[in-house]
Design a protein around this nucleic acid. Structure first.
Lengths: 149, 149
DNA sequence: CTCAAATTATTGTATATACAAATATTATAA
DNA sequence: TTATAATATTTGTATATACAATAATTTGAG
């Protein structure tokens, strides 16, 4: 269904407006799809995003600002997301011994196992996006990168 | 900057994963850009979205489910967004006289004026997206429509 | 007609977003 | 060295998201 049908707009004034609306709508669409896959594992998409970043540095620790700069949504409040992950036993947080204003955030073994579990289900999720070919998916990525300038 | 540099990922496993991440990231990027344009007018992007839908039906009223189905984000809680718009004097809400379980939501004159004001600033906003040509913007829209199936 | 099902809107709750202010620590410049 | 600026994290607050539960009304099958 095209974006006009999807949200019942007769016609957009120009191509850029259509694209902007389409990007916000489709961003939410994708977010919802991925979110529904991750929810059953007991964490949110945003918490999963943080865990993935921690795994990328593992076994080195990561600090808050680094996590924030690598998230899909940089407005996320990393302090509170990490709080949750620590409560759940998926991450640890301690003061960096050399720079006492920095925090060392680390993924735990339990966190790594959880990610492994979630990874197993991922192919099923990605399969839902195969109405586009790999080439078309690449085209989308290239155009989005160019759009953000 | 491409998505790998943007969120510091060395390489994605495949084209579809890169696209999915890129869509979530870029959806947030666009949301933030548009949001910052609308904020100074005293309403949120989501409230603006509702007002636009109400204007589309004006002078006919619109009911909650119709608003919800046409929003960029369908998980929005329309009751509370409309509450806010009514408080601000941009919309009215009354029981539909023929179907007492439906509500008639209408944009006010004040709401229409606000939208007109905001529209005046829009070309400046859209200009920020012209790193893509109109053809490229159309290609993005077509591929997103196809992706959603 | 009557009762169950469907529709429409509201409310409740936990989490996330957006943004500003506060706090603590480290770096730097006079 | 001391004051100032920069960095890193936390906290506060208002709004929005996500989802489930409730309530009221209308529809429709029997």
């Amino acid at each position: 269904m095209n974006i006009e049908e999807e949200i019942q707009i007769k016609d957009f004034k120009d191509s850029h407006r259509r694209m902007i609306v389409n990007l916000m709508f489709t961003g939410n669409y994708v977010h919802n799809m991925v979110s529904k896959y991750i929810k059953p594992f007991g964490i949110s998409l945003e918490q999963h995003n943080v865990l993935g970043i921690l795994r990328g540095q593992y076994p080195s620790p990561t600090m808050f600002t680094t996590i924030q700069s690598r998230m899909y949504n940089r407005n996320s409040n990393v302090t509170r997301l990490v709080d949750k992950l620590v409560d759940l036993g998926y991450a640890t947080r301690e003061l960096n011994p050399n720079h006492r204003r920095k925090m060392d955030i680390c993924i735990t073994e339990k966190g790594l196992s959880l990610l492994t579990e979630i990874d197993k289900a991922m192919p099923d999720l990605y399969a839902e996006f195969h109405s586009l070919s790999a080439q078309e998916a690449d085209t989308v990525s290239q155009l989005l990168d160019k759009m953000r300038g």
